[in-house]
Design a protein around this nucleic acid. Structure first.
Lengths: 225, 225
DNA sequence: AGACAGAGTTAGTCTTGCCTAACTTATTCC
DNA sequence: GGAATAAGTTAGGCAAGACTAACTCTGTCT
């Protein structure tokens, strides 16, 4: 059985690199040095150094000047970290009443320190959640992750009713704003109008109408119907 | 107000050194290089190096070849870490059903990653505990710690009835054994007999009689009556 | 095709925290 | 009081991760 467990202990920076590479690969298909550096708030040269080490440890493959890919082991480690992160987020909000704009930073630190045992107990305590508070799916213990196909709200046609499934979790202020608007996972909304040239979008949320910018609308992932 | 909060961020090793120095100072009155090294599982030379850095940062004072003492800032940082550790232990057992022999190791890692916010929420969630699962008192948010005067069970005279207040938390196997014997904080026990020359000690625990060695008896701290 | 911008890499340095080996100081014991 | 022993320190290294500055690819645009 391929388990997400029983990996050699990785340092916190290594776990962070793998997590970021996983996410970039899922988006672009490839993770570039500068992208990784930007995501981690680190100089590109530092990434080159780490990439060499990660490749030596068999966690990624690296084509010079081309980009990096996770190996099976790397992917496994990345998913383990992502599972930890999301379970912690879910636990903090559901069991400790943590506001959803603060859980990300807390989880960012705890994910490197919590044992698998603790993660499992947290998950069990809140009924084995399948998503985190921002709607991101939680990888299983076994290392599988099913990412449903979602549409950014920015791409939804006028008149269509959609259901919010997931929102960006990085920016605490943005999360507070979304909560204020009532845009949280599970919420039904309808696109009332869209200004041309990437202009603002009018939405019906419950009984009220709100207008948001196109940048924010890209951070809101929805499913049609 | 002198708060336990608002300290510069310290690295995990630094927090560990301060914690250990605090505990050794509480015991011996002075913390020696070799003691610190043994406690942390590190070479004495490494301690000398760290001691220099801690002194430079004003967390300890150091008399060469004599030993170290915490400064006020150092003591504050140590108590903050100890509070975190003990709140985490208490939370894990009371809220997540963690067995008491496992909480120490988990807390050892989480104490460096948890925010003050999280620690406060955990403490609130379980009713502001005053001791950890092994009976150790939890420092307050403000950095005060009241350590009651306790007697090792090894020093109790025959015929005296005592109440278990606190047990050593380092050794998981010892904790499992104590649990099996029924020796947990709050438990009433009576010393039935003591063999001379640091020999075994017979105890009445509830309705049963058990005999323990003198080493274990030193790890059990009690209050008379 | 050639030049240029942008992405990526190398070289060299720094800090933290650890190690071993060799040295120094303090203490204790005859 | 002087030697043995324990405790503590210095010297010299190493690995991880970060940085800046300087270099080299790659790919695009004309």
């Amino acid at each position: 059985m391929t388990s997400i467990r029983a990996l050699p202990t990785l340092t916190a920076p290594v776990e962070d690199y793998l997590k970021v590479i996983f996410e970039l690969e899922a988006g672009d298909g490839v993770a570039g040095t500068n992208e990784i550096a930007a995501e981690l708030g680190v100089a590109p040269a530092s990434v080159s150094g780490m990439v060499r080490r990660l490749a030596e440890h068999g966690l990624i493959t690296h084509e010079r000047y081309r980009g990096v890919h996770l190996t099976k082991a790397g992917r496994r480690a990345a998913l383990r970290t992502i599972r930890r992160h999301r379970v912690i987020e879910a636990y903090l909000t559901r069991a400790l009443g943590y506001p959803w704009d603060l859980v990300h930073d807390e989880a960012e630190r705890l994910e490197h320190a919590a044992s698998d045992e603790l993660i499992d107990r947290m998950a069990a305590a809140i009924g084995e959640p399948t998503t985190d508070p921002h709607g991101a799916p939680i990888p299983t213990r076994e290392g599988t992750l099913d990412e449903p196909e979602l549409l950014p709200l920015a791409a939804v046609e006028v008149g269509v009713r959609v259901r919010v499934q997931r929102v960006g979790d990085r920016d605490a202020e943005q999360l507070r704003y979304l909560a204020e608007l009532g845009i949280t996972p599970g919420r039904q909304i309808e696109v009332l109008s869209r200004a041309p040239f990437e202009g603002p979008i009018s939405l019906r949320i419950g009984r009220v109408t709100k207008t948001i910018g196109p940048g924010l609308a890209k951070q809101i992932l929805v499913a049609v119907r």
